[in-house]
Amino acid sequence: MLKELKKICNPTVFEDIFKTYAGDLKQFLFFKTQDLDLAEDILQETFVKLWENCEKVSYTKVKGYLFTVANNKFINWTKHKKVVRNYEKSAVSKNDQESPEFILLGKEFLQKIEQAIQDLPETQREVFLLSRMEKKKYAEIGEQLGISVKAVEKRMHLALKTLRNTIGNV
C-alpha cells in the first residue's frame, strides 16, 4: 500500500535493491580490482551515491546506474593509484602488489567453483554453504543440523577434498 510507486528513497525499496544487485556488483568489482576489500569498499560507495541521488534515479534504470557508478569509481581509483605509484617510484621503489599474498582469480575459476559446489553430495554441500556462504561457525552448524562439531568438521573436510578433485588443477 505504501509503495505503489517504487521509490528508491523508500528505505525498504533501497534495501531490496541492495539485496538484488549487491552480489553481482561485488563480483564485477572484484574482477576489476582483484582485491576483495577494495571491491566491497567501492560497492558501499556506489550505494551511498545511489542513496544521495535516490530522487533523481528511476527505479527501472537502477541496475544500469549502479554498474555505471561502480565502474566510474573503479576508474577514479586506478587514476588515483597511478598518481600514488608514480609518487612512490620517485621516493622508494616498491613492489607492484602491496598485499604479501596476491592471488589472481579468474571468472572461469569462479564458475568452476560454483559448479563444483552444486555437484557436492548433499551432506557436504549443506555444511560447506553454511560455513562459507553464511559464515556460520562449525559449532553453530552442528547445533542447527543436530550433529557433533566433529561430524561437521569431517563433512567440511570431505567437501573441500571433493572440490579439489572436481575442480582439478587451475
Binding site: 541492495f18 549487491a22 552480489g23 561485488k26 582469480l105 567453483i113 562459507r132 556462504m133 579439489r164 575442480i167
Partner: peptide, 11 residues
C-alpha cells in the same frame, strides 16, 4: 578456493 567462495558470497 577460499578467496573464490568469499567473492561468491553475497554481501
Amino acid at each position: 578456493l577460499r578467496l573464490g567462495t568469499e567473492v561468491l558470497r553475497s554481501p
